[in-house]
Design a binder for these strands. Structure first.
Length: 152
DNA sequence: GCCAACGTTGGC
DNA sequence: GCCAACGTTGGC
């Protein structure tokens, strides 16, 4: 099993929104970055655990846990000219963008903030806190996963 | 609202 | 294939 972290802006789609979805499940659409695409298409497996991270909010941090419930499949929002994530270079015969479905598991008892993650020397190498990393999907090692959970 | 970091685009 | 211009992300 693998571990991941996915970023979302709570004003757009937060952990509470995921909890309220039918089946508490949501397709993670709209990702338009090749590295993140590759991870969703190739690496994320059913049962993988996901930290749900709130970005662009005060304070930014990890707020909950989700789980991959459907593996990579074409992101259809790229096919729809009306959709803000439309990409004319992607079509059904040769889809460029992929997504996974994630399901709500639980909220953390408290937000584990970006600030405290940055502060911990034992979390050196965590992609989230590496300088300049703006990926919206990133891997988390098992060691880091357990360590972060122990902070809850 | 600012701006650093970084990805993408397109002219050459 | 280089690189300047531009757009986006996301912390602050």
């Amino acid at each position: 099993m693998n571990y991941w972290l996915m970023k979302s802006e709570p004003d757009v789609f937060g952990i509470d929104d995921l909890e309220k979805r039918p089946n508490q499940t949501e397709p993670w659409d709209g990702v338009r970055n090749y590295q993140a695409r590759n991870m969703m298409r190739d690496d994320m497996k059913v049962g993988d655990q996901v930290f749900f991270y709130h970005s662009n909010t005060q304070p930014p941090g990890i707020v909950g846990i989700a789980e991959v419930v459907r593996e990579g499949y074409p992101d259809h929002t790229a096919f729809d000219p009306e959709d803000p994530h439309y990409d004319p270079k992607s079509d059904r015969d040769n889809p460029r963008w992929f997504m996974v479905d994630v399901a709500f598991r639980r909220k953390l008892k408290r937000t584990i903030t970006l600030a405290e993650l940055k502060d911990r020397p034992d979390l050196d190498g965590l992609p989230l806190t590496r300088k300049g990393n703006r990926l919206s999907v990133m891997p988390v090692s098992e060691e880091h996963w357990k360590l972060i959970l122990s902070l809850e």
